[in-house]
Design a protein around this nucleic acid. Sequence first.
DNA 1: GTTGTTCTCAACCAATCGGTTGAGGATCGG
DNA 2: CCGATCCTCAACCGATTGGTTGAGAACAAC
Lengths: 139, 139
Amino acid sequence: MAVDQLSRAFVALADPTRRDIVARLSVRDATVGELAESYAISMQAVSKHLKVLEEAGLVSRSRDGQRRPCHLEPQVFELMTSWIERYRRQAEERFSRLDALLADLADETAPTGENDHDHDHSDRDRDRDRPQQSEGVPS
Amino acid sequence: MAVDQLSRAFVALADPTRRDIVARLSVRDATVGELAESYAISMQAVSKHLKVLEEAGLVSRSRDGQRRPCHLEPQVFELMTSWIERYRRQAEERFSRLDALLADLADETAPTGENDHDHDHSDRDRDRDRPQQSEGVPS
DNA sequence: GTTGTTCTCAACCAATCGGTTGAGGATCGG
DNA sequence: CCGATCCTCAACCGATTGGTTGAGAACAAC
């Protein structure tokens, strides 16, 4: 319960059935029963899956009589892509500029006076979930 | 082990420690020991996390003496965003054109002859992991 | 009302997960 | 060679996960 939204979202999409439900809901809203027909599992199991998706903020449910139509919510998807893209971009940057590595090597063998390989640790911003020494170990 | 890459990737990023490792590796490559210093868990635990990230294809490891420097691999990140973005886009489309819903309602009350609410099921492309009746239920 | 449909809750189960400790492989540096 | 360092493997543990079945809440329809 003390788990952040990003974790919940990734957990939710880690299951193939749940991803498939997302795929279906992207086409049209659907009720629990409608969804359950497509899978070889019980409706209760589908209901559980939907609960996971809902608590992750990926899906919302309204009321229509005794039906509970499910609807896809785009916002958290955006949150996920922005997280992923941030680090993908950085990784690709570092990849394309491996000349920097060369420069670092040169620096190591012939220090030109300005050793700039101790500053890069700055924009880490790991304070989102921070499984650190001090507070990590949730157990 | 019969689990697809997308599942492995989402599972890998579902853990806060693993996401933090990704954040760190996006700045610079690091060895297991270096990473382990930052967390309140044993090096063995960090090693396990790295194994998960590696098997998801998010991280690769090279050799340098007895060190195992870890490196971020952008490709699978791209795979993830393209999956997410696909459905986010579709959800947002449906959101912005809820006039279609209105049309569907009108169709229901006054069928104009062409009932076009049975065709949209076409671009589902659920054949990626397909937890279906026939083959679902992996257990 | 009663009956039927849709869905959720609760208890249970096997399997997996994130962590631990202990042992040991591989490599560097004397 | 020997010891130290870096890392992985193996066994174990408690908590969580994805599924089940059974009971029942909530509403529709008769």
